[in-house]
Nucleic acid binder design. Structure first.
Lengths: 105, 105
DNA sequence: ATAATTTTTTCACTTTAAACGAAAATTAAT
DNA sequence: ATTAATTTTCGTTTAAAGTGAAAAAATTAT
């Protein structure tokens, strides 16, 4: 429950779980799509990282989006959620995101 | 003023204006990114079509998005604006879209 | 310490989307 | 019917996404 953001899963395990080559995860990292903890040189991923990567794969493979678009998606969402836009827009947009993620289920 | 949606510009003119090959516009059409009027077999585009295509090019070339992502963007926006979600969310989202397009200028 | 294993990194290759060139096919115009 | 324009098809080019192989670096075991 509290280990959601605990970076403790090594890359090979994550790659196997997602069904991708570990090289692909290195590749994503170069685009800042994911940011594992580095202990020494080794990488460790959290459950949240893994679920995020699942979502990324879904957008890419089920929907056909490319990396750049996903990065834009993040940036825009961050702008909305962290940025300096009015409270009511933030609230509405949060609802919108919720709605979309529900539709996805 | 009323000619905004008047489909009267032939493909070659539109392609020249956008700086693309007309083949590219045929290509976009196969993805339903634009829908010119067919009189006989000839295609005619409106000013609104042209501005939409300018925006598409911008998303692709300045931002690096791919066609599929733009189609998703349309679909989602249509869901929000035309769909069955509450009025206030629609209004908020319209504002959001306005804001984004202003930031772009 | 050094040998063995694991992880990272680099290089090169494959595959696919996006776009374009050339030319054949179709349509319209005189 | 001949000419001109438009559409369509086919093949090629370019770049992104991903992978394989193996070198390089680091960690672990003996």
């Amino acid at each position: 429950m509290f280990d959601e953001y605990d970076k403790s899963y090594p890359i090979e395990l994550v790659a196997d779980f997602l069904g991708v080559n570990s090289r692909t995860l290195y590749y994503y990292e170069r685009f800042s799509l994911v940011c594992p903890l580095r202990r020494g040189r080794k990488r460790y991923y959290s459950k949240a990282d893994i679920r995020w990567l699942e979502y990324v794969r879904e957008l890419m493979y089920d929907e056909g989006m490319n990396l750049r678009s996903i990065i834009i998606l993040i940036r825009r969402r961050d702008n909305i959620i962290l940025g300096k836009c009015p409270e009511d827009v933030v609230d509405c947009f949060k609802n919108y995101l919720m709605q979309i993620s529900k539709e996805r289920e």
